[in-house]
Design a protein around this nucleic acid. Structure first.
Lengths: 224, 224
DNA sequence: TCCCGCGAAAATGTTCAACAATTCAACAAT
DNA sequence: ATTGTTGAATTGTTGAACATTTTCGCGGGA
């Protein structure tokens, strides 16, 4: 029967059928990530309830989950809307990235965790070679996720994944030109090299430089 | 009629009567913070529903909110329990603190934000003089919250407040001896002084040293 | 004695229907 | 043009019901 995690284990083996509310949240999360639900769009409880074949209460629980991830915002008595990031949010999100990513890089990582970073770099190169703009963005997200993963902290990983989800949010608002990530491939490679060489401070410095340029770019795109 | 925040503004003026679910969450949050609900305690939906005079569904929504803050953990089909941090969580929480606090300190802050840090130091000194152990802990939380507030990032502030709430969680598990914070008053003062002198790197260094010792202390207490 | 499965009780997950409270848009009035 | 007013639509909350899962005691058997 495989009884597992007697203590505070959220993850149990089982067949792991996610609760309905969780699945609804995942579905909405996916649609937001894909751009099927654009920032600012209103999510009506009743409509979603019918469309997804679940009760209003369940939709409501899913909303709570997404709201905690900042993917939607709740306006009391008005409804929930797909989060729409403003210019000020850009700076805020990058503040979080600076804190978390730089800290992880400064702390270095195990050989395997650095290998994961390298893998993300290669993934990006392949996508670039194939002209896969979509895959390039995905690889970039993987790269920065891998950086944070070096720290081996579950909480930091969760925070980072939420931040990356938020980033995708304003990528849709002003759809990014194809060569957006192209410029940053070399940066990623150099950061990774510094890590492999054990020079964490250099890696951190390069990362900070990258983040500054990236933020500037985003700000420029979103003030036009 | 004071139309406010036309865009994604969660905060509107209004009379601001928090929704019932929000109030229930606040109430539970308070009881957890005060230690009325100890880590590991089970929160039964029906019992709370009666006790607070709200419906089960509303209790459920409050649970979702608390779960997103990691104050409670949901075990599917088993119920929700007040989060009980294990030794591994200590390291994890401190990883987040290192990332966020150090980043904020390195970035420095405005004169007012530094003044807020100084105010928290003084608050701690007063509490120490009065032998108020409780107030000492509170002041310490204010101090570290003020450090992060220097960055001026809403997201970082939210993350930090959640982390501080988590910290209080394992303070209850192994109730801290009275002179726990006493030792750290001087650290706080020195960190603050470095900030006031504009030497952010020195402040960051001292903070890192403090966090390392604090983590060690916590780990020692919780492995006994 | 110990262990294993069976079944009832209890708690959670989800649904459904209803009502109160609030917002919103259209429209009338000044 | 601005201000009230009305009514429909939507959210907030409730209460009850049912399905599912876990828990736990209990008897049977090695």
């Amino acid at each position: 029967m495989a009884t597992v995690n007697p203590s505070s284990g959220v993850s149990r083996l089982r067949v792991a059928v996610p609760a309905v509310a969780t699945r609804v949240a995942s579905e909405l999360r996916l649609q937001i990530a894909e751009g099927a639900l654009l920032p600012g769009a209103k999510l009506k409880e009743e409509a979603l309830s019918e469309e997804l074949g679940v009760s209003r209460n369940t939709v409501r629980e899913a909303f709570a989950e997404l709201a905690s991830e900042r993917l939607v915002v709740r306006q009391p008595n008005r409804g929930v809307f797909v989060a729409s990031l403003e210019v000020s949010d850009i700076h805020d999100v990058y503040a979080v990235r600076r804190a978390i990513e730089v800290s992880a890089v400064r702390g270095g990582g195990s050989a395997e965790s650095i290998a994961a970073v390298r893998a993300a770099v290669e993934e990006g190169k392949r996508a670039a070679a194939a002209g896969d703009s979509e895959g390039l963005g995905s690889a970039n997200a993987h790269f920065h996720g891998a950086l944070v993963a070096m720290a081996g902290s579950e909480r930091l990983n969760v925070i980072m994944s939420q931040v990356l989800a938020e980033m995708r949010l304003f990528f849709h608002k002003a759809s990014i030109d194809g060569g957006f990530y192209q410029d940053y491939l070399a940066d990623n490679d150099q950061i990774c090299s510094a890590l492999e060489a054990g020079d964490n401070d250099l890696a951190a410095e390069r990362l900070l430089s990258y983040l500054a340029r990236s933020e500037e770019h985003q700000a420029a795109v979103h003030t036009s």
